[in-house]
Amino acid sequence: MRSFASQLQYKNSDPSSLRRAVSAAEFLDRLRREQPFSYARLDGVSLSVAELMARVYEADSTLFPEVAKDWQEGRVTVASMRKLLKGILPSGYAGKVGKARQQSFKDAAAVAIKNIVGDMDLGEIVSMTARAAQKRPSAVKVDYLFEMRTARTVAVMTVGPYRNATMYRDRAEEWSLRAFGITWFYDVVVLVLPGPEEAKVYRQRVHQLQAEITQRKLSTPAPRVEVTHIFVEPFGPEYSAVGDLAP
């Protein structure tokens, strides 16, 4: 990926930024095939501008030829494009990228997460604390921390939502190992995925790790990591929990 980005003269070596750069380049290639006149108007744009253009195209492709024309003629700036996007993108997390997308998902899922934790066999919830208010080392902060009446703690981490669906499978190992790692600090760790198919992959990996820990007697009792999924409406604030903590 770094080699490809280098060919595109993209200097940022951060993996997340590189993925975004590749996505922008893929958009330009798609635009060349689907709207060649608009593509010609964007000749020489930076990848950061291409990324913004891709979001406009995704939101309303019928509007795009006019935006591309205005860009070529100097009537559109990065600031005005951002303002345009704010007006045409939906209110849910689907219209956002990066940390804003993730935070939007977490905020919308909060009540459903609380309901799922409340239904676990751990007693009554005493408190629910978001990451920003947690007084713990940054390495072990989680999206939501629950303290139960039984004096046990439940740490919840949301995975994604990723725009590229393959990232769920690619990062399953990383998230699963991280979940087991922080069981040294919490009694139960819950991974929340946005859909049942994604959760299935993570649940399988978690079960494999739990079995290996038990077999090798690395911990008694074995660390408790759960996987669930919560559906959050991508284009608005409504949400509902559609999954549960499968054994």
Results as ranks from 00 to 15, higher is better:
83 K>Y: 01
129 T>G: 05
126 V>K: 14
114 K>G: 10
127 S>D: 15
41 R>K: 13
90 P>E: 09
108 A>E: 04
88 I>F: 04
52 L>E: 10
55 R>H: 07
90 P>K: 03
67 V>W: 04
98 G>N: 11
125 I>F: 10
35 Q>M: 10
33 R>V: 13
39 Y>H: 14
131 R>N: 10
94 A>F: 07
51 E>D: 14
66 E>K: 12
99 K>V: 13
85 L>F: 03
44 G>E: 03
111 V>H: 11
47 L>G: 05
57 Y>E: 01
98 G>E: 15
79 A>T: 12
98 G>I: 05
76 V>K: 10
35 Q>V: 02
112 A>R: 08
134 Q>G: 11
79 A>G: 07
57 Y>S: 02
128 M>L: 07
113 I>A: 11
113 I>E: 10
36 P>E: 00
128 M>Q: 14
112 A>K: 09
126 V>T: 12
108 A>L: 06
44 G>Q: 02
90 P>A: 08
56 V>I: 15
109 A>C: 08
108 A>I: 01
86 K>P: 00
58 E>I: 02
61 S>R: 15
70 D>Q: 15
96 K>E: 08
44 G>T: 04
69 K>H: 13
62 T>E: 15
54 A>E: 13
127 S>P: 04
111 V>Y: 10
106 K>G: 03
40 A>R: 12
100 A>W: 01
104 S>F: 02
66 E>F: 02
110 A>L: 11
102 Q>K: 11
132 A>Q: 13
45 V>H: 02
129 T>F: 01
62 T>H: 09
42 L>M: 09
46 S>E: 14
111 V>W: 07
69 K>N: 09
56 V>E: 00
54 A>N: 05
67 V>L: 11
82 R>I: 12
136 R>E: 14
134 Q>T: 13
53 M>E: 05
120 M>W: 11
42 L>H: 02
109 A>P: 00
121 D>P: 03
130 A>Y: 06
96 K>M: 12
88 I>G: 06
41 R>Y: 03
42 L>R: 01
119 D>S: 15
64 F>S: 05
127 S>L: 04
65 P>C: 08
120 M>L: 15
44 G>V: 07
102 Q>H: 12
56 V>C: 09
67 V>G: 01
71 W>F: 09
92 G>A: 06
91 S>V: 09
112 A>Y: 02
115 N>D: 15
75 R>V: 04
136 R>Y: 09
57 Y>M: 02
47 L>C: 07
107 D>I: 13
89 L>H: 01
78 V>D: 09
107 D>G: 00
61 S>G: 00
34 E>Q: 14
129 T>L: 07
41 R>Q: 13
58 E>D: 12
87 G>I: 00
75 R>H: 05
34 E>W: 02
84 L>Y: 09
115 N>R: 11
105 F>E: 14
39 Y>M: 03
87 G>W: 01
83 K>S: 12
37 F>C: 04
106 K>E: 12
35 Q>A: 06
75 R>I: 03
101 R>K: 08
59 A>P: 13
117 V>W: 07
37 F>T: 14
79 A>M: 05
62 T>W: 08
98 G>M: 07
47 L>N: 07
73 E>F: 08
124 E>Q: 08
116 I>Q: 14
